[in-house]
């Protein structure tokens, strides 16, 4: 059964051109889906419509058996706890420690007062520490986040998403600000999360060769429309130029080397 299903999702920012038009696709549980496309194609909008950071203008979104696009405030909060999110600029509170930032992922489960006071249970702290260890940040637990490198910050971002015990994680350009080494570490962590924890991943990516290498499935978006939806092996050079526009031809290195590493 599909964990996530989009049906004719449409989004207008102003009345002129749609940012998303009639987007429909399904994501199965445990799938690693990459969304690729040029800047301004609507990738970020698409991702934010799923957890309702942006309200859709039309169409429906089903997540885990509920109609996400119709939820009221309290249920929406509950839905969001089940969907983690990772950002290009990490979006951490720089003045707080790694552990505090990671524990922010638990706020959605807590009462207002407990969250305000920052009271976390022993179990939550243990879980947070375990995840931090898993991501190799044990030495940084009590460091403030502004003392970390970009790659470390993104791992904190991943830890914050994981501590939510999410069914799905949305990643908005997770490696766009990182150097190749840090990018590889982050992508490897994401693959482990998908394979070993069975968490569904929807990842916006600029680098389509990374998408080819890591994902189970690729969705190509251009001008708010899905122009490709299928396995990485099926993505031909022609379709890539469909997604990115004809100018991209020179940049394309032979696609289809999915399992290179």
């Amino acid at each position: 059964m599909a964990l996530l299903e989009l049906k004719n999702v449409t989004k207008y920012y102003n009345n002129a051109t749609p940012a998303l038009s009639e987007v429909s696709f399904e994501v199965r549980e445990g799938e690693f889906v990459s969304v690729i496309g040029p800047s301004g194609a609507g990738k970020s909008t698409l991702l934010r419509c799923i957890n309702r950071m942006i309200e859709v203008s039309g169409g429906e979104i089903y997540f885990d058996g509920v109609i996400a696009s119709k939820l009221r405030k309290r249920d929406l909060r509950k839905l969001r706890t089940k969907i983690g999110m990772i950002f290009q600029h990490y979006n951490l509170v720089d003045r707080l420690t790694v552990l505090e930032n990671v524990l922010h992922g638990r706020l959605g489960y807590k009462s207002t007062l407990a969250g305000v006071l920052g009271r976390y249970s022993e179990e939550e702290k243990k879980q947070a520490l375990e995840i931090i260890k898993l991501l190799g940040l044990t030495d940084q637990v009590y460091k403030r986040c502004d003392q970390l490198s970009g790659g470390q910050k993104q791992r904190v971002g991943i830890a914050r998403a994981l501590v939510q015990n999410p069914k799905m994680i949305l990643c908005d350009e997770p490696i766009a600000s990182l150097d190749p080494n840090a990018s590889k570490i982050i992508m490897d962590h994401l693959r482990n999360i998908s394979r070993e924890m069975g968490i569904t991943l929807v990842v916006n990516l600029h680098q389509f060769n990374v998408a080819l290498k890591y994902s189970d499935r690729i969705i190509g978006v251009n001008k708010g429309m899905v122009v490709f939806d299928g396995a990485p092996e099926d993505l031909s050079a022609e379709q890539i130029s469909d997604i990115y526009g004809s100018e991209s031809g020179d940049l394309i290195i032979e696609p289809g080397e999915k399992n290179a590493s």
Partner: peptide
Amino acid sequence: DRNVLEALTASGANWWQIVFQAVIPSSA
């Protein structure tokens, strides 16, 4: 940064929690 608020909203935190966990620590 608006992005920090976005991240906490996306994880299901409510307004008061965001204020005390992100806004006030950042501007103390």
